[in-house]
Nucleic acid binder design. Structure first.
Lengths: 219, 219
DNA sequence: TGAGAGTACGTACCGAGGGTATGGAACCCT
DNA sequence: AGGGTTCCATACCCTCGGTACGTACTCTCA
């Protein structure tokens, strides 16, 4: 019916000078983006197992033939959605962090931004909840290490070297701390008063981190 | 073939005085337990979506008719498996904790036991990984609050009242701390040297908690 | 410029798997 | 002793992920 290919002839000879890509390629990437968009929305609302590909293609106004032309499987579709969401949020956080140079301030800013991002249903559902199960714990962790986990890793390393003397715990510390932040974000997202909960959580984490500064040695 | 009902007649008239339950009821609960056992094993190995009911009933040497007689759905079967695993591990931890009265020592013992329990594939896969997605985040959290989360809640409350002055953060603190422990358990379970990783993690958490003692006030 | 190659889909179908309907054998109760 | 209930097997249905294949459109190159 309203398929893009049907209107090709009416506007055919205009382009080809301004844009390097052909109209056909534009259509292709457009339908691919439409598939990713509708999949993102549906995965966010109903989870991975809860959304059927029929729903996805219907929302994108194409058929399964189109979907399987762009993505080899449902899992691959999800992985693309996952990475796209993850990438955008990671960029947000890194941008926020870059405004400061002091490791403690960067940690503070990053934490605040992360708690904020985790309240967005997309990131929460797709990257935090469905991701590990759909992709498998291993693949998910791999992707995480390259994204938000990596940011935390860097922040923690800076903190620990700033403190001095506890570098040997870096890995374990990052793991524990990242879990604390994740849980904190869920707590905030579930709270009836997210702003107050966010304040409480930040106070808690600051208290825990602040305690570290007072420790002469660890072990 | 080897169905229990087939051997009924050969051993029929012996019971009924020693046990209150009929032989038929014994058989019924036995097949139910067999279904739960095989389902537990398969869910542990292949996850919720990855195991088919055909596999479950085949492993339990029954048919889908039997399964759907005892459980109304696949999800209900999983929930029963989930609760059974959760209950047993909770009992383990509570038993270990009960050996001490000092809140800091109890926290120490409980943490150690929890990290140990989280290395068991059953609890790890079913309760930590598949649980939240299969049951839904809400239902999972509800069950958690009544189980291991509840234990942590109690321990944290004891710690904070022992410290004094930071009770208003109790809820948030528990949430953050519980996430830290969960992540710690995954870190330990994934590590190539779990014992060393467990030591690192415990040192980290002790450091974070120990820092709290040095804080005069929080906020 | 037009014919073959490649792209971007649509349509029809298959098989696996969750769930249901039905029936029957064993058991319980009165 | 006969009906009701429990416990389970068999056969079937339906959804949904995935595949096979057809087709309209576009690009390339002789």
């Amino acid at each position: 019916m309203s398929h893009p290919a049907r209107v090709t002839k009416t506007v055919l000879r205009t382009a080809r000078k301004t844009s390097k890509t052909s109209r056909r390629q534009d259509y292709s990437s457009s339908t691919k983006r439409a598939l990713l968009d509708s999949a993102t929305a549906l995965f966010t609302d109903h989870g991975y197992a809860g959304t059927s590909l029929d729903e996805v293609v219907a929302a994108a106004r194409v058929t399964k033939g189109a979907l399987y032309h762009h993505f080899p499987s449902k899992l691959a579709l999800f992985e693309n959605v996952f990475l796209r969401v993850q990438e955008s949020t990671t960029a947000d956080i890194e941008k926020a962090i870059s405004s400061s140079k002091d490791p403690w301030e960067r940690a503070q800013i990053g934490l605040e931004k992360f708690l904020e991002v985790c309240r967005e249903p997309q990131f929460r559902r797709i990257c935090m909840q469905e991701g590990p199960v759909a992709l498998g714990h291993e693949r998910w962790q791999e992707a995480e290490k390259a994204a938000s986990y990596g940011i935390v890793q860097g922040a923690v390393d800076d903190l620990l070297t700033d403190l001095g003397g506890v570098e040997q715990l870096g890995e374990a510390f990052t793991a524990v701390f990242y879990g604390a932040i994740r849980s904190a974000s869920e707590y905030v997202a579930d709270a009836e008063d997210p702003d107050a909960a966010s304040d409480d959580v930040q106070a808690t984490i600051s208290a825990l981190l602040g305690g570290l500064r007072l420790l002469p040695t660890v072990g």
